[in-house]
């Protein structure tokens, strides 16, 4: 899949809706299976929502009982499902890893490589503030003074980057280093195009983000 370096703003005419849908589906699949939050594909989501609106306007022109209208509606429902599920998965990760995501995202924004969309980032910060206020109101304000501070760092939950995942290689990639904990003899493996593996997420995290592997 060579959709990585497509620039939506510049060459909107070039990509077909079909490609956008495929990219979105693989982004959804990766997001569902990766332990951490992945860079957002808001460009794809926005583009697809536009397509859906356009299609819905056309369907409304057809008579209700028309078979084509039925087919189009069913397809739209399938696509909407992917988009909803994708966004929901991201939201649930944001809520779960809220503190760590907000901290890391602040650094990423400085270097211009943000993973969250502006509205997701806003949501994450709001969520954090609400959580803090809630804990203060219910517990912290009622305990002795020196225990009242809300310690963000102690509350932070981090995704388990060492968890094992299944992947399929889209490209041949050589020299993935697998850490050996006991013997101190790190192992090196190659991923051939089309091959499937189970291994730790951490050494291949970057490959998921640049589309070289697909989580399955």
């Amino acid at each position: 899949m060579d959709t990585e370096d497509l620039d939506l703003s510049g060459e909107e005419e070039e990509i077909t809706a079909e490609t956008v849908l495929k990219t979105l589906q693989s982004a959804w699949q990766n997001e569902r299976l990766a332990p951490e939050i992945l860079p957002h594909r808001n460009d794809m989501v926005e583009c697809m929502l536009g397509q859906i609106q356009h299609m819905e306007r056309n369907i409304n022109k057809l008579p209700k009982t028309d078979l084509r209208a039925c087919i189009h509606k069913m397809e739209l429902n399938r696509i909407k499902y992917i988009i909803c599920n994708y966004l929901k998965t991201r939201i649930s990760k944001i809520e779960k890893f809220c503190i760590s995501i907000v901290n890391e995202e602040k650094q990423r924004i400085e270097s211009g490589t943000n993973y969250l969309t502006p509205s997701e980032f806003w949501y994450a910060q709001e969520y954090l503030v609400n959580m803090e206020n809630h804990l203060k109101n219910t517990v912290l304000n009622h305990v002795p003074g020196r225990m009242q501070t809300f310690e963000f760092n102690k509350m932070a939950i981090y995704p388990n980057m060492q968890s094992h995942i299944f992947l399929k290689a889209n490209d041949t990639i050589n020299g993935i280093v697998l850490e050996d904990l006991i013997g101190d003899q790190d192992e090196e493996i190659d991923l051939e195009e089309g091959s499937q593996h189970i291994l730790q997420y951490k050494p291949i995290a970057e490959l998921v983000k640049n589309g070289k592997v697909q989580l399955v």
Binding site: I165, F166, L199
Partner: peptide, 25 residues
């Protein structure tokens, strides 16, 4: 902590999903 699973289909992989990766974790 590593295995190669060529030719397994997605449904087959999914059927061992809660068990195998967690056991390896």
């Amino acid at each position: 902590s590593y295995g190669r699973l060529d030719h397994l289909t997605m449904m087959e992989i999914n059927s061992v999903k809660p068990l195998l990766p967690q056991a390896m974790d």
